[in-house]
Design a protein around this nucleic acid. Sequence first.
DNA 1: GAATTTAACGAACGGTCGCTCTATTTTTAA
DNA 2: TTAAAAATAGAGCGACCGTTCGTTAAATTC
Lengths: 197, 197
Amino acid sequence: MSKGEQTRAAILAAALDMARQLGLEGLTIGTLAERLGLSKSGVFAHFGSKEELQLAVLREAQERFVAAVLRPALAEPRGLARLRALFERWLAWSANLPEPGGCLMMAAAYEFDDRPGPVRDALAEGQRAWRASLTRTIRLAIDSGELRPDTDAEQFAFELFGVALAAHHDTRLLGEARAREHALRALERLIADARAT
Amino acid sequence: MSKGEQTRAAILAAALDMARQLGLEGLTIGTLAERLGLSKSGVFAHFGSKEELQLAVLREAQERFVAAVLRPALAEPRGLARLRALFERWLAWSANLPEPGGCLMMAAAYEFDDRPGPVRDALAEGQRAWRASLTRTIRLAIDSGELRPDTDAEQFAFELFGVALAAHHDTRLLGEARAREHALRALERLIADARAT
DNA sequence: GAATTTAACGAACGGTCGCTCTATTTTTAA
DNA sequence: TTAAAAATAGAGCGACCGTTCGTTAAATTC
């Protein structure tokens, strides 16, 4: 890895940290440079514009999410085992994010939901991909016979997504300790209702 | 209503509109003044600080939410009728927000979830109150005998909250047309599972 | 080790930020 | 109608924004 690539990676890591606290818009090049002991223009040169920096940070967050949540769960056997592993890793990701700061993608979803542009596009694309992965995981549990064939995988994924959002919300804003328990019970209810009899 | 109160109300309405698009932090006094045809200092004088403006905007949003969602639903008879009315009004609120801009409180929840201060406090307090109203509505459906006595009202409220979050997310970021349908189905599943047999 | 590409700096740009202060106008009350 | 009070304007503060530019220092290649 060349010197430039090293620096870029270091900037990206720090920027991700900042953006998790302050949002992708609240992220500023000056503060970022100061935190890294670099000059503003030095940081700037690596990305060319703030929007490119935001895009890079978002992609970094998305990759980390996939690496921490989706990829390891794929090691589990298809079916409910994988679905449960996926969801538990998801909850762990959301609960174990380094303080301070929450999940960048969830925050960005609200920050950019009505700000057209490449950032919003990348964000929406990532969300769609994640939802598709969720749906696929559920569908595999149907195929394996653990869930009834008439189960609506998209509806299931929608509800599961909501459970994760609520857990994140309760934990971070309300400091609600039972959020994880609530979320796991919600998953089990989803499974129970769709379970093959 | 005195002249000052009139102006203040006009500022608040415009500020709420701006904050729904740009977030409470993205809201700026200069742009707000320009939009209203007032001077920056004229707008500023009504609130004394940006934080006070943010607080006032947040309270305004909370009051409007209560007036549009909770209060009318209280006219329905206690039980499932009121619960369904409440949820449907909630979905309508979220779907019919004037474009552009989403729900200020949901956005602020992510913007301020790790920014201690009065804004965060007011936000969390409002969320707790809303959750309590939800829980109470569910509990009344238990008391009326429509839901089983062993129903966990807090778990129910948690899941219902997640459904609303997911619906808002799918509608606004992904432009998913079936979000309302998904949400209503999720509510019916919640009810069916808790229904007295 | 020299040549050349790459990385980073530092100063400066026009703009906007929240905010302060002083004036002036407008509204309200006596 | 006049005096007090409230509301708004306007200029300006220091700080920071993203960005540009020319230059220097460092890393890489030959």
